[in-house]
Amino acid sequence: MDGGAHPTLFGWGSASTAGRGSGFCVIGVPADHGNGVSRGAARGPASVRRAARLLPVPRGAGVDAGDVPGCRAADPETVLSRLAEATCEAVDGGFRPLIIGGDHSITFAPVSVLQQRRDIGVVWFDAHTDFSPWVEGQGHSHKQVLRRIETLPGVKRVLQIGYRGLTAGDERHLGDKATVVTSEAARYLTTAELLELMPHDLDWYVSIDIDAIDPFHAPGTSAPVPDGMEPSTVREFLAAIVGARRVVGADVVEVNPRLDVDDITSAIAARLLWTIADGL
């Protein structure tokens, strides 16, 4: 794994994904080839780790395995296969992957690994549904990643939270597995109602696209949509999820330091990861 020059997340010890332990294993994915809108999310892992230095050490245990090698490859498939390998190693070692993106296309790798071991549900915080049409052979990207994830046999439930804005079609209905909670509906959603949407017999993977947050709070992202969720609301939801469900992995993606203002978006992303790690 790369990334030795960066501080580790929350000051956790450096480790190889091949080691054994418990708690979270941080994996950085400095890749943004799956984002067709803008470059810059590849700088996310370093920026989020830096921002996390200002936070206390969370209660949950963890190690930081650095960044996935091979992220400079120009094709997303190489990045996905390397990340899948790293995820496998981490899970085999008893860890839960805690991934820092990178663009959102990378989430396909850890979810595809985890759903092979046990049925899972996926919580998808995002301003977009990422459900653009995709056919076999077409390039993988952050616009259709959830559509591909939903087809994985071990993914039994998808909970999309944060859809909003003006779109060509009504994207509130993404298939039998999926429930969409718009950003507007999320304002009035209690944590109890949220958990009712997440069967407790499933393990859950939590994926957070930072653009779920309102861009006046988190401007450093490539496809901002106004009128988003408050950071405190997302933190409240995350705390409820990690407190009441088995979270087998999580990620924060699409932080784009190139577009950020005073690293405020990286700081919010770090705090969201901290909320997950602290509540485990």
Partner: peptide, 23 residues
């Protein structure tokens, strides 16, 4: 340009946009 004006193929009328907030 992220909110592309489109014309419905059959009705030949502008399709407009779906406002996720108001439904």
């Amino acid at each position: 340009l992220d909110y592309t004006y489109m014309v419905d193929f059959d009705a030949r009328q502008p399709a407009g946009w779906f406002d996720a907030g108001s439904g």
